[in-house]
Design a protein around this nucleic acid. Structure first.
Lengths: 230, 230
DNA sequence: CAAAAGTATTTTGTATGCAAAACTAGGAAT
DNA sequence: ATTCCTAGTTTTGCATACAAAATACTTTTG
């Protein structure tokens, strides 16, 4: 008889990895922050062993950097890193769009349309957090419609590295309106099953987003962006 | 003065990860094979701790699968997984080609041309191992010419999952000649800096490769490809 | 006082120990 | 014989212990 009482919680190292990932993505653990093992293991109430295993996983995902004999720090992206990462994301989203246009069902399209309208509502209210949330969900749905779990996993991994930047980024009214117009076009291209059109739109859409983030990095000085030399 | 970090060997978990990755990629550790901690730690002369850390990294890379309370096994790909993975690789190589066509220098082009001729020599001699080696190097060089380390890293990670299949795959003369012709065209498109042309060629080139591997999977029955149910 | 040197403390990296879960195998009951 | 149970063994997962490296601190010396 299998136990029904306790929810078979997943392994501790997975749990810890999930929580750390969350905190990095949300920016609570800022880029460059040192991951002190003793401190974190006390905070999370686990021993150092599963904690270290989790950190190694995050390192493989590119979210933290391992410094030999000096522990781990939250990965810090140089401006060039941001440019490169957006370039890859743009390509991956382009792929998603191209495949989604070929494979999307009417139900999925209807759901994306619905999310799109909700997003328009958020824009109308100038509710940036809601807008971002819906925006993320739309992109995730397009990705899902591509029906390629490997693509989804790859996209999520690369995306995670940028999330903390995106969460903080701001939009001037002009950029915001452009983004909304591009989203309009996305829905139309999806409905028309225009694979290459959607691919191109998504690529340029992401490059616009990249420029917005870069602008923020330049002016806002969110945090240090220099990587230490090898 | 920074140390030339040559002799001070890298951390054990990195070392172990490298060696296990190697053995998985080369097929020495076959898909589905169980990674017994005691056995491996004895074989590699390390304790279980760094071994487990290495395994967690490989899991994050998608090379091994973690089974809760039952250890880790070398990742096994279903036929659908192979299809999906090749689809992603095709997109990533397409990206590489597109960017490489825009950014490649004459020196890099000359090197690729040289490798291409060496590959023609290997084809002429029907030396399949040498052909594959050179083929890999050409694709890696194109990727490098794209000048995007994030793209390179992503590509390598996804590629690693397929390497063991590719190493074993065979080519009938027709497919081989087609591949060689496509490689000819690649060099020409690179020389002409035809970004979108090269992208499209690389995508279709990879899809041909995919079909070759799938054929092998069907007929050859290399090893079991079914994933166990959850 | 500043720089250097030496010492103490912290932190990381690896090994080992221990408990719980998963296998194995040998019967007992049907 | 097949299924079920149970005791013994193995294996995994986590915690802890110990050694080496790095950092912080103090003292010494110019």
């Amino acid at each position: 008889m299998t136990n029904l009482n306790s929810i078979p919680r997943q392994a501790l190292h997975q749990e810890v990895a999930t929580r750390l990932r969350q905190r990095i993505i949300e920016g609570e653990l800022a880029p460059g922050a040192k991951l002190n093992e003793r401190e974190l293991s006390e905070r999370l109430q686990v021993s150092r062993t599963p904690l270290r295993e989790a950190v190694k996983m995050l390192a493989a995902e590119g979210l933290v950097e391992l410094l030999p004999n000096r522990g781990a720090v939250v990965a810090q992206m140089s401006e060039q890193d941001v440019i490169d990462t957006f370039e890859v994301i743009a390509g991956l989203e382009g792929m998603s769009g191209e495949l989604a246009a070929k494979r999307i069902t009417e139900e999925e399209l209807a759901e994306i349309r619905a999310l799109h309208f909700e997003m328009l509502a958020a824009h109308s209210r100038r509710d940036l957090p809601a807008y971002y949330r819906l925006n993320s969900r739309i992109h995730a749905q397009i990705n899902a419609a591509a029906r390629n779990p490997v693509l989804t996993q790859t996209w999520q991994t690369v995306n995670a590295r940028l999330q903390s930047l995106r969460f903080r980024s701001n939009l001037d009214e002009g950029k915001w309106q452009q983004a909304v117009r591009e989203h309009d076009a996305m829905v139309e291209l999806l409905a028309a099953r225009d694979a290459s059109g959607l691919r191109e739109l998504l690529v340029s859409h992401l490059l616009v987003k990249r420029d917005a983030v870069l602008e923020l990095l330049h002016s806002g000085r969110l945090y240090e962006t220099r990587k230490e030399e090898s």
